[in-house]
Design a protein around this nucleic acid. Structure first.
Lengths: 355, 355
DNA sequence: TTATGGGGAATCCCCACAG
DNA sequence: ACATGGGGAATCCCCGTTA
């Protein structure tokens, strides 16, 4: 006798070829700025994954208003427990939508990965082994082996110029980022944004070389042209559908001046939920939820937007411990994916078609 | 016993609330230009539907290069068979896609309503009761009781500046418009386009008033501002998803100069196939094609893009002569329309549930 | 290679509902 | 009236096919 042997559930719908990256953090050594690197190299050599030069330079720039000189070259050989940034809550990886500037503000902020409908959480970091005042800066970087500044902007609470800056008081050891939003810069405008960032970093680089961060540096026509060209190149193939948060912390000394820079820490990637393929996969409705163990039955499945060439329907059986004891895939081709919102497939046979 | 009683076919899927307009043509009297009307009035009084003033003025302007004076005021009381434009083939109403400028040229032209896959036809007109040379002009107008010039442009063969102009030789009594395309002007740019048209028509109006079509007229700041304001108003609620072709003909005398203007004739409306709701309704796939006469069976239907609030599924039975002997509607609500591409409905009972 | 057609991505707009 | 979330319209880009 045929019987309903396999149940279908939402988790059974899976996309092929998706890698869910885990969170990353950099080594805990003090960051040491290299004065030979303009941040414009294309080398993919990243045995020692480092913070991109651009980024730190930019941050120094932003802190410029403090009018004091940070000794970027300080070496610490201190082996004691060193301060470092820890991400205590990652941002949600999926389900958040990047909004365009034209969509206006206030469409809800980025939540934490543990967020629930009626118990919302938010991305948060903690500065370990340190209890004094600091300034925390968050900006967006690309999801690459060697991350670069991203064209998108952080907007929302405490944000300006695409960057989020929070001054942390003594004793406040956790920083929670409620209402952080990712503003989706259009592909067209992304070149401009990146160009600006490059120009600033090149200026800053000059200033660092001159050893004076308080005097404006100027770029030659040539350098400007180069910045533009480079920006256009970067903008052209920058992935606009994924960003990472880059957290940086500047520790303040007794007088409130910046004394140390902690190594940057990157969050796990955040995928734009509006982007094709980045959607949370979801089965909305099916015309049958059970059938013959022999398989080969046609099922109409209505789903959220999928990619006809990168989607499959997976049947799984798990034991009490959640181990997969059986799996098989629904049978269909790209042609059976209707307008990205429905799939017509044939059921696979159950492992024991007579059971 | 239950049996398959009603068949489903593509024609059974119908939208509510769609009016398919029939073709229209204006009265056959000679067109008489009113010199008091700038074409800018908003009156919806159209007992005698007339050609909008803008249009004709524009055409005169376009013909200006001929450097001769057309007597626009000629009255004919002639009762003999008068020349007139007849549309011998209407354009296809549905299934044609308006293309944006950015989409580049050559995506296929507007076809005739009788066009078939391997026997294509095109919109065509005939000038009746006349065999001499003429110039035929086609442009786009709105689908309103009082048509206005449309923001969209005609492009393709013989087109320039959004207008199609064909010189017709003696003896060629049919003009066929192969490769006419409608260029979709963006809502933003539509105001500019319309403003330009209004400015031209106002200039022309002045020139007409001055009785000299060969000398350029100038507008005051005030008039320009008024044109702009009016254009913005018109652009804001102009329907960009539908146009009509406006055919005009200028008969030439023995020396090749324009001697008479025939009354304009409008085609039936042409709906942009890419626009929501203007799609050809189509059932792509269903999970069952027959069922119980008692009805109340759930059917998953995959379709082309529909509007969840303006769609229904109709079951019909026709006799041999095509008369409807029974009809009923599938039962579903907007919530059952999945992302515009699928409908889950319950079948209605057949007229005789026991048969 | 262009002509023809079509799918869907990127951008933008606006609505419904909850607080 | 705003904060949040979401659907879909308007615009744009690009691909496979066929003539």
């Amino acid at each position: 006798m045929n019987c309903i042997k396999h149940a279908y559930d939402n988790d059974s719908l899976n996309a092929r070829g998706r890698g869910y990256s885990k969170s990353e953090s950099f080594d805990e050594n003090w960051y040491k700025m290299s004065d030979a690197d303009t941040g414009s190299d294309d080398s993919k050599d990243s045995n020692t994954v480092g913070v991109p030069q651009f980024l730190v330079v930019n941050n120094v720039h932003m802190l410029n208003g403090d009018h004091h000189h940070v000794n970027m070259y300080e070496e610490t050989v201190d082996d004691e427990a060193k301060p470092y940034i820890e991400i205590v809550e990652q941002p949600q990886s999926r389900g958040f939508r990047f909004r365009y500037e034209c969509e206006g503000p206030s469409h809800g902020g980025l939540q934490g990965e543990k967020s629930e409908k009626y118990r919302k959480t938010f991305p948060a970091i903690k500065i370990r082994n340190y209890n004094g005042p600091s300034r925390v800066v968050v900006n967006l970087v690309t999801d690459e082996a060697v991350p670069r500044p991203h064209a998108h902007k952080l907007v929302g609470k405490n944000c300006s110029d695409g960057v989020c800056t929070v001054d942390v008081k003594t004793g406040q050891n956790t920083v929670t980022f409620a209402n952080l939003c990712v503003q989706h810069v259009t592909r067209k405008k992304s070149a401009e944004v990146i160009e600006q960032r490059i120009i600033e970093s090149m200026k800053m680089d000059k200033m660092v070389k001159l050893g004076n961060l308080n005097e404006q540096a100027y770029l030659s026509e040539d350098e400007l042209a180069q910045a533009k060209q480079q920006a256009e190149k970067q903008a052209k193939d920058m992935q606009l559908n994924v960003v990472k948060l880059c957290f940086q912390a500047y520790l303040k000394d007794g007088s409130g001046l910046i004394s140390k820079v902690l190594p940057s820490v990157l969050s796990s990637p955040i995928y734009d939920s509006k982007a094709p393929g980045a959607n949370v996969l979801k089965i909305c409705r099916m015309d049958k939820y059970g059938g013959s163990c022999k398989g080969d039955e046609e099922v109409f499945l209505l789903c959220e937007k999928v990619q006809k060439d990168d989607i499959s329907v997976r049947f799984v059986e798990q034991d009490e411990d959640g181990n997969v004891v059986w799996e098989a895939f629904g049978n269909f081709g790209p042609f059976d994916v209707h307008r990205q919102y429905a799939i017509v497939f044939k059921t696979p046979a159950y492992k024991d078609p007579n059971n």
